[in-house]
Write a protein that binds this DNA or RNA. Sequence first.
DNA 1: CAACCCTAGCTGGCCGGCCAGTCAGGCTGG
DNA 2: CCAGCCTGACTGGCCGGCCAGCTAGGGTTG
Lengths: 204, 204
Amino acid sequence: MDASVRTPERKLAGDKAQRIIAAMRSSVGARGASGSTFDQVAQEAGVSRGLLHYYFGSKERLLAEVVRHDCDLRLAALEQQLARADSLEAIVDVLVTSLEAFLDQDESDDPALIYEMFSASRHHEEMQTEMAELYRRVREQVGAALREKEHEGIVALRGDAEAVASILFALADGMALQRLSDPGWDSREAFAAGALTARYLLGG
Amino acid sequence: MDASVRTPERKLAGDKAQRIIAAMRSSVGARGASGSTFDQVAQEAGVSRGLLHYYFGSKERLLAEVVRHDCDLRLAALEQQLARADSLEAIVDVLVTSLEAFLDQDESDDPALIYEMFSASRHHEEMQTEMAELYRRVREQVGAALREKEHEGIVALRGDAEAVASILFALADGMALQRLSDPGWDSREAFAAGALTARYLLGG
DNA sequence: CAACCCTAGCTGGCCGGCCAGTCAGGCTGG
DNA sequence: CCAGCCTGACTGGCCGGCCAGCTAGGGTTG
């Protein structure tokens, strides 16, 4: 009963497990969930194929782990940005800038990852749960941040804080879908309209 | 050079081709694009597996055909609804009602179809083109309808008509993603905020 | 200190099954 | 009778999961 290996969670903190998660994450972004094979992912992670089963048991569980990991990273980054914003304009700017950064990531960190995961989650129980959790956390945490801003008098939300958070993310997801579907689309007008909409939702 | 079979398009108008498209459409909704096999689709369409290749040549081309078909149907339905709406409130109502209907379809007509197609399109040239075309048409046609409404003095758009159309669809897509990810989510507050947002975009 | 474990992390060949695409030929209406 | 529609057995390749066994290093024993 010492601090050594005991729970599965302990194992996944190791270097190799993290490399596997990172490799799967990048592979799903590039090739999709069903297009990502244990063979390729193992090779990219620099481990053997068997190790993927050793750590995660099944492809589904590895994918669920990738979702959780990705959600953690993105939420933390956004929340940090939001915390700094001390005016309505600053918040809108954080939202717009985050979306633009999200869409212009380099290849190893494909924005389509999250939508691949959404599709995959529709056919796997564990991933379904993980995706539901993801959006729930987003709404709750960003909602809480917005409520805080409202308390400080920076914003005057046009509705329930979590509902506003939900709408803001819906907007961002929807814009991302359109931009990813048609990379050649000139989205400047739409971005402007989106920013205006966000400003309205925050009380501007 | 008569009216008989000549182009591939002519062939696809036939009964069996349409049954195949319908079966693939429902299968992709239920099982995803990569989870849909020619075997099952052929069986559900009541034709042999070979016929799918005979008509469409490859899975990718069949999927592209499904996207085009689905887009035609949905756009036509929405445009018809919009044409009838003769007040700002009526338009918002059409948008909200359409989204709710979209989300509450029966199983043979899964709303997730479009997002499965989005994922699939990221790995297939022809589908990529088809998806870009889909969103382009949506923006153009709904944008044109909105411009018309503006001309009639019913709405006062908060930006370029196509940009507003784009934002409205982004909103709907994003809400759909959240609802589909977490069916248990109580989205009433978010729907209310979404309707408010739509009203604002239309000048209300 | 050396010989001997013994465990846990790790490996990769193998298996059973699946799947898109091919093709040789059957069928039928004109 | 034949052209074009249609069929389904077959092919070759791929993939997730399984598992028998390898290896390193810490502990134990003589």
